[in-house]
């Protein structure tokens, strides 16, 4: 064994890491199944359910009608009665079709029933603009979900987290939304073959720094890291935190960082007004006001529906250049 060559690190794109996460859960949990539109025969429109039907059969990999209320109700009813469903909501925008099942039933049932119901249901859904999918297939609506007591919401920014967070979500005995990003599907990195968890509710420092703290959500983590590289060239050393979990939000990690850097910038793809960044800003002020040397700033989408035209969509989505500019503005450079 000691002589064995260290195996080459296995690199997997985000889309296959999602697949492996689901596969791991279905192998580990006999009471789990995945149900959603086109998840079985077609392997999901994104391809991340590929091969699941072959391995687990139609009892556990279930194509549903295009009926989001029904699909989400299936998740509520089946989880409350002893199953551990994985529900696939093809686009996050379709939340509008099933918000009652999500907000009034799934999130609240445990509380309303005095703690006597347990709903171990995981919902996989896809957010994010950048594919020319326009206003109804591109939104980042995580703030809608994070506003619901009883709901957990995570946003894996990379392939490693996507697999680990799906596994964590499915082992959690609460409803958890795993908000994936469609522009990240091809992003590859080393992903272990074995089963592992990425903890829900814990942010992670992706890059250490001293001059300013960037708190980023989902794919925006990569824009923030790009920005950090560019800022290095002008002698600025910013810290980048990947929030990973929107609800619960890891305020402690952010506050610890700000006590060191004294400046904060929140970056998310959702529109700025009413976005989660406003909440994080308020929390930082409540807990670390005395440590701040500058106003807390935000980089987020403008207050408009996601536009179709590539020319406008490019303008719409927050990017590294915008982050660089905002960091410089915050530091009065």
């Amino acid at each position: 064994m000691s002589e064995a060559k260290k195996p080459e690190p296995r690199v997997l794109p985000y889309v296959l890491a999602i697949n492996e996460g689901i596969r791991t859960v279905l192998r580990e949990q006999d009471d789990s199944f995945i149900a959603g539109e086109d998840v079985a025969a077609a392997g999901s429109v994104y391809g991340y359910c590929g091969g699941l039907l072959d391995e687990f059969g139609s009892r556990r990999v279930i194509d549903t009608p295009i009926s989001e209320k029904g699909i989400m109700g299936l998740g509520v009813g089946a989880s409350a009665t002893g199953c551990r469903p994985i529900i696939d909501l093809m686009f996050m925008d379709f939340l509008g079709e099933c918000m009652d099942e999500v907000a009034n039933q799934m999130a609240k049932m445990r509380f309303m029933f005095g703690g006597k119901a347990t709903l171990p249901v995981t919902v996989l859904t896809m957010g994010g603009a950048g594919g020319g999918m326009a206003a109804q297939h591109s939104q980042s609506l995580e703030a809608w979900l994070a506003h619901l007591p009883g709901m957990k919401v995570v946003m894996p920014s990379d392939a490693y987290d996507a697999k680990g967070m799906i596994i964590s979500a499915c082992r959690d005995d609460n409803p958890v939304f795993v908000v994936l990003n469609k522009q990240s599907l091809a992003m590859s990195m080393e992903v272990p073959e074995e089963s592992y968890e990425v903890p829900i509710g814990e942010a992670i420092v992706r890059k250490q720094g001293t001059d300013l703290t960037i708190v980023a959500f989902g794919r925006m983590v990569h824009e923030a890291l790009d920005a950090a590289e560019q800022l290095k060239e002008v002698g600025l050393n910013v810290e980048v935190i990947d929030a990973r979990s929107v609800q619960p939000f890891d305020t402690a990690t952010v506050v610890t960082s700000i006590k060191k850097t004294h400046r904060a910038l929140i970056v998310h793809e959702a529109v700025k007004f009413g976005g989660i960044g406003g909440e994080i800003t308020a929390q930082i002020q409540e807990e670390a006001f005395d440590y701040l040397d500058a106003p807390i700033m935000r980089v987020a989408a403008p207050f408009s529906p996601v536009p179709f035209s590539p020319a406008l969509e490019k303008l719409y989505i927050p990017n590294a250049a915008g982050i660089v500019a905002k960091v410089k503005e915050t530091l009065e450079l």
Binding site: K69, G70, M72, G73, L74, G75, V76, G77, A78, S79, A80, T81, G82, C83, P85, D100, E101, N104, Q105, M109, M112, F113, A117
Partner: peptide, 21 residues
């Protein structure tokens, strides 16, 4: 599985419970 304050809230849940069975 609960009274329900939402008119039409119950049937999808009952369907899910039936799926479970």
């Amino acid at each position: 599985l609960g009274a329900n304050g939402i008119v039409g809230g119950g049937p999808p849940i009952a369907m899910g419970a039936a799926f479970s069975n």
